[in-house]
Design a protein around this nucleic acid. Structure first.
Lengths: 358, 358
DNA sequence: GTAGCATGCTAAACCGATTTAGCCCACATA
DNA sequence: TATGTGGGCTAAATCGGTTTAGCATGCTAC
């Protein structure tokens, strides 16, 4: 009565690792593709299929190692469970941290994602979103990348600042970040501060600089034009910060603190300062921005405005999925603001005695 | 006679950004899907279609912004132009550098890729390759990840050491790396050396340690068991190296040099050494491994064995594509060896006078 | 005058799933 | 006895492309 478990032919067993199609599986079972598909996907319509049959189907699927072809399924369902992620560069601390947050949430929710890095080349920034949409991504996440045009799918921009239709921007509260940094330096007695602005192309540059000026005014700190440098060049190496710091030093105007656009440039600037004989933090206090991994590895540790980069990645992933899965075209958030933290490490200290009397 | 360029209805124009199907395009042109497809893909069979028609087709495709659905194409052609990349973690220096090399080459060749990170969790290491194959990847690249089973598609393992069917391993010449490091230290006069081995799960741990022992023997350097520590724990933070260095210091056995498993742990170890009052490099010389970005950002810069990580990524991508596109089942390389470099920075120096007489 | 061939296409199958519509049978009900 | 009604399925359409096979037509060669 109880038929023994059907043993598969040696061929089937040997090829168990190979992919088998729904059709083959259905034929093997003597059932229709429909029936098998219904059961495998546990759709409500399968309720009219008796338990016994369902079990047979599932057992055979397991045994033959059936795995539905995702392409075919996506094509039919018009759902790919795939997201596109656009970053300037992978190997850099900032994007890597955001990505790890994105990945965490997406994979957990059963989505996969394509990554493309454009290295700030405009034609790629234009082309990749199109290529990704051709590949049927259901949404896009752009990290530190100013997309020029609206796209057909939900788009979440981490550190995006443009108000475009269809875009949700995830932005740091830069005003708060600037205030935290300047307050910290002011409390330590610093008045003569130098600054490094970001590259023109970085989407945070303008906002952050406005925030710094706002905070400076608020705190009664004067910003001298001659003590303001700007990063130049595509790369994301400390070399850029090094160059800017050298220029600032060459001008000869005194300063006891330096607030850099990001950690990478702060690290480069420290190198330049040291070469010029300035000790950190005894002669010059340095504050970075981002809190990338190597900020903590520095010696002394880098005091910095911490962006919750991983969390911003998670938030971006959550938001894009919410928008994708919203029942109808609902209103979506245009902007989500996250709060910075301030991490005090060894690169900042009290203003040196020599500069104190001023 | 020369009909003016057909103006598209305002609706078509307005929706130009929306995706349009081959069928729609063909109907718009009054031609068959076949004809349009042949021309768009510039297949040889299109030679029987006159130039005039071809131009009409291409013009319409451009105008209506036709972009073939990649899913449909992949399904029919049984080619997805997609690779799966398996890494332990994205935000870590090692994997990020390799990935940037992989990406560079893949995108250049018109392939996209999925990234998944498994964080050393075994069930994910098992499951992800299957999920990726369900998504029809044509090949896999595994970075610092020991895959247990053969897969159905070409697999290239960066820093893989197991000899599995279907796998190409890309490995560093570890013997050379170890020799470079130990020779450097020996020339500086160091004899009492401490070592930090990698975690058990890291695929490089065993090979590298064997190489270190081999090189030590060759150079007549004695390795004391009590001066050998091992990283423990999943994370990739310097904290792990810090802990190991503390243990080594606690044992009290003197050493003037430390060779760490990687840069991250070297950075942590330096922190511990400094806290114990040892200056780098005056009291202890430290050598890392990998040459991740932050190695150069350290102060002093970290002397290290440089793995050509980016190049290894490019090589992995090249190899996997070559294997995919090989005309028939050809023999494929089982192993590709790359050479390390040695980068001398400030973390190493001559053995201290006090230890020299020994 | 017609076989043969090139030209310029098209119809239909196919990739591998999901999904809609509906068939057949047994049983209950009027 | 005719009429639902639910159970247990299946056939066929569909997603959007590519690819195979082949159909007219007109011209050339014999």
């Amino acid at each position: 009565m109880a038929r023994s478990k059907p043993t598969l032919g040696s061929k089937a067993q040997k090829n168990a690792r190979e992919s088998i199609s729904l059709k083959t599986l259905a034929e093997h079972l003597g059932l229709s593709k429909t029936a098998v598909s219904l059961v495998i996907n546990r759709v409500p319509a399968a309720k009219s299929i008796p338990h016994r049959t369902q079990e047979l189907i599932r057992a055979a699927a397991r045994e033959l190692n059936y795995r539905p072809n995702h392409l075919a399924r996506s094509l039919r369902q018009q759902r790919s469970y795939t997201i596109g992620v656009l970053v300037p560069e992978i190997s850099e601390g900032y994007a890597a941290l955001v990505m790890s947050g994105i990945e965490d949430h997406l994979l957990q929710e059963g989505y996969f994602y394509f990554v493309v890095s454009h290295r700030h080349r405009n034609e790629l920034i234009e082309e990749y979103p199109l290529l990704l949409q051709q590949r049927a991504v259901e949404g896009l996440v752009a990290v530190d990348t100013a997309l020029s045009e609206g796209v057909q799918v939900p788009l979440v921009a981490v550190s995006g600042h443009r108000d475009l239709p269809g875009v949700t921007n995830i932005v740091l509260n830069h005003a708060r970040g600037a205030t935290l940094a300047l307050e910290h330096l002011a409390k330590l007695g610093h008045r003569q501060m130098a600054f490094i602005k970001g590259q023109e192309f970085s989407s945070d540059t303008a906002v952050r600089w406005d925030s710094v000026r706002g905070a400076a005014t608020e705190l009664g700190i004067e910003i001298k034009e001659r003590l303001v440098g700007q990063l130049e060049g595509e790369s994301s190496s400390p070399e850029l910060g090094y160059q800017v710091a050298r220029k600032l030093l060459a001008l000869g105007d005194p300063f006891t603190a330096l607030f850099a656009f990001n950690d990478i440039s702060a690290i480069g600037a420290i190198q330049a300062l040291r070469e010029a004989g300035r000790r950190i933090p005894e002669d010059v206090s340095v504050v970075g921005f981002d809190d990338i991994q190597s900020a903590a590895f520095q010696n002394p540790g880098l005091t910095t405005v911490k962006q919750p980069l991983r969390e911003m990645g998670v938030l971006a992933a959550q938001t894009v999925l919410e928008r994708i899965n919203a029942p109808v075209k609902q209103p979506y958030p245009k902007e989500i603001i996250v709060e910075p933290d301030f991490v005090v490490r060894g690169s900042t200290g009290p203003v040196p005695r020599s500069a104190r009397e001023k």
